[in-house]
Computed example of a mutant assay.
Amino acid sequence: MEKPIIGFTTGDINGVGPELIIKTLSDNRILDICTPVIFSSNKVINYYRRIVSDHQLNFNSTKEMDKLNTKQVNVFNCWDEEVPIQPGVLTEAGGKYAVRSLEVAAQCLKDGQLDALVTGPINKANAHSANFPYSGHTPFLKDKFEAKDVLMLLYHNDLRVALVTEHVPVDKVSDHITTENLQSKLTLLRDTLVRDFGIDKPKIAVLGLNPHAGDDGMIGTEEQTVIKPLVDQWKQQGHLVFGPYSADGFFAKGNYRNFDAILAMYHDQGLIPFKTLAHGEGVNFTAGLPVVRTSPDHGTAFDIAGKNLADNGSFLEAVFQAVNLVRQREQYDEYTANPLRRRKMEKERD
Rank of each mutant, 00 (worst) to 15 (best):
Q113R: 14
F39T: 05
R195Q: 15
H239D: 08
D311L: 04
F259L: 07
L102K: 00
N60S: 15
M218F: 14
G17L: 11
T294C: 14
S26K: 07
G313V: 00
F274K: 11
I30S: 12
L207N: 08
G11R: 02
D158S: 09
A130W: 01
N123Y: 07
D215S: 10
V150N: 03
K124W: 14
D303A: 12
V226N: 13
N255W: 03
H137Y: 06
Y48K: 12
Y266L: 02
I5F: 08
N324G: 05
N284Y: 03
K96N: 01
R160P: 02
E330Y: 06
A261M: 06
L154N: 02
V118Y: 04
K124M: 08
I45S: 04
K96G: 01
Q236M: 13
N284I: 01
I51A: 11
V150H: 01
S174R: 03
E180K: 14
N58A: 07
G7A: 06
T9F: 06
G299T: 10
G280S: 09
V16M: 09
Q236I: 04
N255T: 09
P84M: 07
N181Y: 12
W234K: 15
I45C: 11
P229C: 06
G217W: 13
T286G: 11
G254F: 05
S101F: 01
N126W: 06
L68A: 11
D80Q: 10
T165S: 03
L25H: 04
L117Q: 07
P18Q: 05
H239T: 10
